[in-house]
Nucleic acid binder design. Structure first.
Lengths: 168, 168
DNA sequence: GTTATTCGGACATTTAATATCCGAATAATG
DNA sequence: CATTATTCGGATATTAAATGTCCGAATAAC
């Protein structure tokens, strides 16, 4: 039951993009360099976010990534699902149908109690992540950071941020 | 974010053991055969449950496994943790300390907001599973099963159940 | 039209999950 | 008490998935 490293990277990258002015973006290499992680692998996560409609990509010179919708509309679950997939963590293989006392398929319309319990637990997990948006994360970071650190970030952004064409 | 198959098998096996009379057990091969899964791999899960103190094992002739404590004291989280480990699913690698604007270690005493959000979600997941015990599962199974199916199980148990010595 | 730049998917590598086997330990038996 | 059959326990292969890397397709600037 491990959440892949890519989720951590994708959330950090998305949080960074949430801090950009409207219509501006960052290229994959910049996001990777900022977080000190391999460029190509970070690019892979951004690709997944793009497929999920969380970020918009622009190719070619002065290309890059930016959020596809407001930070208030992007939850941590959205990002997690984009990277890890939407499927359940607990996969019931219906072993109650196996063996000498196996049930017939027709008697298994309802999910087994064990699968139901895990399904309920995963719902609690999802709901908790759905309640946290990139806007929340950004606000908390601003509140908890030293002013000089925020200043460092601003300066770095000014040197790396890219203007993106409006119609990708 | 996948939960291993072993968790499913372990929960089913433990639920079966919860149905046994006091002081009786089942050998690994019987539990595996009942559920239609490979014996050696089922044995591995039972081993993990034994290490975690959830089941007691007895070796040698007429050996086998039985619950180490009342079914009301064994939650689905206990079993999940025994198989998957107690560590968090989201592992914060502190990438906020990396890159050109990386924070100093001394400024990272508190966990980052992202890690905190995932930690909270996982707590919700755990609490949900902790609320479900083997006793609950057993009760629900009895309620939802056809009488003839319960009869089949009883007959199978009579042919496979083993008396275990009281002091392992 | 040409070129520089960037994303996108296909391709290796490493790690973890899955499955299996053989030795250590124990209880029944003579 | 020694022997033997039987069972669990840890060490060992195999397979799938996560991790990491590369080159071609597409786009914008010139």
């Amino acid at each position: 039951m491990q959440i892949s490293k890519g989720v951590e990277w994708a959330v950090h990258a998305a949080s960074m993009m949430a801090a950009l002015p409207e219509g501006r973006g960052l290229k994959a290499a910049a996001l990777a360099h900022y977080h000190g992680v391999p460029t190509a692998y970070m690019a892979k996560q951004l690709q997944a976010l793009s497929k999920a409609g969380i970020v918009q990509s622009s190719r070619g010179a002065h290309g890059g990534y930016r959020l596809a919708k407001p930070a208030t509309d992007i939850s941590l679950w959205d990002i997690t699902a984009a990277i890890e997939g939407h499927g359940p963590a607990f996969r019931c293989t219906e072993i109650r149908q196996n063996g000498p006392c196996g049930l017939k398929r027709k008697d298994c319309k309802r999910p087994c109690q064990i699968a139901a319990a895990f399904s309920s637990a995963e719902r609690a997990f999802r709901d908790s992540l759905k309640a946290v948006t990139l806007a929340h994360i950004g606000l908390q970071v601003v509140r908890d950071s030293e002013p000089e650190h925020l200043s460092d970030i601003m300066h770095w952004l000014e040197s790396e941020v890219m203007p993106l064409s409006d119609t990708p």
